[in-house]
């Protein structure tokens, strides 16, 4: 069980925060390009899911699996998107994602008047709180190597 990386996007698609813990493969492009590709993929998945859905959906896209990892997605009504990739053993972590939003993002970014919204988060306090929170998760413990 492990957490690979985490992205936070705002509603315009700029990446507010990125951190990685156990990432073994880089995407083979600059980080800027990777954020854009990730956001583009999520944006397309959102509209794909919206059209494909046979009935009306409320939450829409939740997660996807490939053979090696699982990507969890959470979007607030204001368009902030939190994306975490983990290994396949992790179940639904919707509550954890909403916790990250309400107890870390809102507390240490929105309530910090020196943090501009819609720009990459510089706050060291936010970074360390988020890092501690992720490291404290039950499924964080990295496998050997």
């Amino acid at each position: 069980m492990t957490v690979h990386n985490l992205y936070i996007f705002d509603r315009n698609g700029s990446c507010l925060h990125y951190n990685e813990w156990n990432r073994k493969k880089q995407a083979g492009m600059s980080k800027e390009q990777e954020y854009q590709l990730m956001y583009g993929m999520l944006f397309s998945i959102r509209s794909f899911v919206n059209k494909m859905s046979p009935v009306d959906s409320s939450d829409g896209f939740l997660s996807f699996n490939t053979s090696r990892y699982k990507l969890h997605y959470y979007e607030t009504a204001t368009g902030v998107k939190i994306v975490i990739t983990t290994d396949l053993g992790v179940g639904s972590i919707r509550d954890i994602l909403s916790q990250i939003y309400s107890t870390i993002y809102v507390e240490y970014v929105v309530k910090n008047p020196l943090c501009g919204l819609n720009e990459p988060i510089q706050s060291e306090l936010f970074r360390s709180k988020l890092d501690n929170y992720i490291r404290g998760l039950a499924f964080f413990s990295a496998r050997a190597g």
Binding site: H4, K25, M41, V49, F61, T66, S67, R68
Partner: peptide
């Protein structure tokens, strides 16, 4: 893209995509 952005080497593309109303 799902396979390209993988944090683990040797990943396939999207195998299961879950939403609140259906699973692909």
């Amino acid at each position: 893209i799902g396979s390209q952005l993988s944090p683990e080497p040797g990943s396939s593309g999207i195998e299961v995509l879950e939403t609140d109303t259906f699973k692909l």
